[in-house]
Design a protein around this nucleic acid. Structure first.
Length: 446
RNA sequence: GUGGUUGUAGCUCAGUUGGUUAGAGCGCCGGAUUGUGGUUCCGGAGGUCGUCGGUUCGAGACCGAUCUUCCACCCCA
């Protein structure tokens, strides 16, 4: 058969893994500097843990795992005869692949609440799966890098997480714009316009402002059952771009004013630190995930058209659906695959990251090959990343291999070298070649 | 999930209104060079034209289905 992999998934060559690890290492090191600790959760969760957390659309994109054994015997025969897939799912699939890292984290916190000290700061770098139709920068399997802190509602953490974004994108040299808004501000707009019951629907329309423009949003609002007067009011509120005026506009909305207060407090913290990237209040930023309740964030880079490369926000009540109440959390996520694509496109990866060994040993015949193996052992015992070509093949072939794997040095082991103990070390970049004793080689390559 | 798009050698792509044995560049392998790679020259290998079916005397080309890619929605990292 012809080999293939499922759509939206990818293999990774060694050089690609090296690049990805470069991103992970950078992110991980920033996370740890800020006091976050790593955890891991299973790739599959009970379907009941996942369903209903991401809205109806999200539920459709969840990968469900067919039960083992004779699953049809226990299937809902009524749903089966009705050909009702949604109804049938519950009886034939108990598990699903995780859709993000935040919901499994909420489950984790609830289950292990007695083992954790709050505020609990964790990071997690693992794959997630979504049954979306693939496009550039959109895969069915991809890594997310999440940092979250639960057990505190201090706005200090919102500022801290934005600063983490700033640090990571600065280190990776990606020019980023970090957009900030607050769900309470959006709710305030709905409240002031008298459309509280259409809050979710309204935010989805507002979120498209960049894409479809003011007229488009107005039209969409009306399609969603909002009157012309209400839509006009909403659109005029969206034009207010400073917090003080917005505060005034929310005189009839305590929630809206509370949202403004939170944004002010967030800025008070953030203003006490230096940032390199553009941090922007964007009243039209909405974000789809239903569980956000306070500040929300999204990161884009205007150099590459690939959608957002990060997002997150405050969720006051995520653990309550698992029975743990009153635990507020806030977190952000980095989209590793998209960050990779952006860096590839902007050519931001350092050139030396795929290098695996420092020196390749080359022997000329059976006898020197055996000797080279003992030299190899000694280099390795001294922590020098090294390898020996597996046979005394033609030099051209061995040199070509060295060139192909871009090893910086080649050590030639011939009979002359073996007798004198002076080995020829060739610098593959300059082409220069000098003789050294093993002791000297250890210091040159150390 | 809806509408569209793509698929020919390892890679990037040609391939005429349907007509012999499907081409190029790069890469790969071998040699020029039996102790020297990345340059040069010479030679060579490599394809079930995504897959299955249909139309036709004849299909890489036309039709259908399917898989995949990318794009616009939807949503999102």
């Amino acid at each position: 058969m012809k080999p293939s992999i499922p759509k939206g998934t990818r293999d990774f060559l060694p050089s690609q893994v090296a690049k990805r690890n470069y991103i992970f290492d950078c992110i991980r090191s920033v996370f740890e500097t800020y006091g976050y600790v790593p955890i891991e959760t299973p790739v599959m969760e009970n379907l009941a843990t996942l369903t209903g957390k991401y809205g109806d659309e999200g539920d459709k994109l969840l990968f469900k795992i067919l039960n083992n054994g004779d699953y049809l015997a226990k299937a809902d025969s009524e749903a089966l005869s009705e050909k009702n897939s949604a109804k049938l799912t519950k009886s034939i699939a108990k598990k699903g692949l995780r859709y993000d890292l935040t919901v499994p984290f909420a489950r984790f916190v609830t289950m292990h609440q007695n083992d954790l000290s709050f505020p609990f700061k964790r990071y997690q770098i693992q794959q997630v799966w979504r049954g979306d139709r693939p496009q550039k920068g959109r895969y069915q399997e991809f890594y997310q890098c999440d940092v979250d802190v639960v057990g505190s509602d201090s706005l200090m953490y919102e500022a801290e997480l934005v600063k983490i974004y700033d640090d990571v994108f600065t280190a990776l040299r990606i020019p980023a714009t970090i957009k900030v808004n607050n769900r309470k501000v959006l709710y305030g707009i709905a409240e002031a316009a008298g459309v509280e019951e259409k809050f979710m629907s309204m935010t989805m329309a507002i979120d498209k402002l960049d894409k479809i423009g003011q007229d488009g949003v107005t039209e969409e609002l009306m399609q969603r059952g909002i009157t012309t007067e209400q839509a006009d009011f909403i659109m005029s509120t969206l034009k207010i771009d400073n917090l003080n005026d917005l505060f005034e506009a929310f005189s009839a909305s305590p929630t809206g004013q509370h949202g403004i207060q939170e944004l002010r407090e967030f800025h008070n913290y953030l203003d006490r630190t230096e940032t390199n990237n553009n941090i922007q209040f964007d009243i039209s930023l909405a974000r789809g995930l239903t569980y956000y309740t306070g500040c929300i964030f999204e990161v884009i880079t205007d150099k590459v058209n690939i959608g957002s490369i990060g997002g997150g926000g405050r969720y006051a009540d995520l653990t309550s659906s698992f029975g743990l109440k009153g635990v507020s959390g806030v977190g952000v996520s980095f989209g590793a695959a998209r960050i990779y694509d952006v860096m590839e496109e902007l050519d931001l990866f350092p050139s030396d990251i795929s290098q695996t060994i420092s020196v390749l040993l080359i022997a000329f015949d059976e006898m020197t090959h055996g000797h080279a193996f003992s030299v190899l052992s000694e280099l390795r015992a001294n922590g020098i990343k090294s390898d020996l070509y597996p046979s005394p093949a033609k030099m051209k072939k061995q040199m070509k291999y060295a060139n192909d794997i871009s090893v910086p040095y080649v050590l030639l082991v011939g009979s002359e070298e073996m007798e004198t103990g002076q080995y020829s070390l060739k610098d593959m970049n300059t082409g220069e070649q000098k003789k050294y004793s093993i002791e000297d080689i250890k210091t040159v390559l150390a």
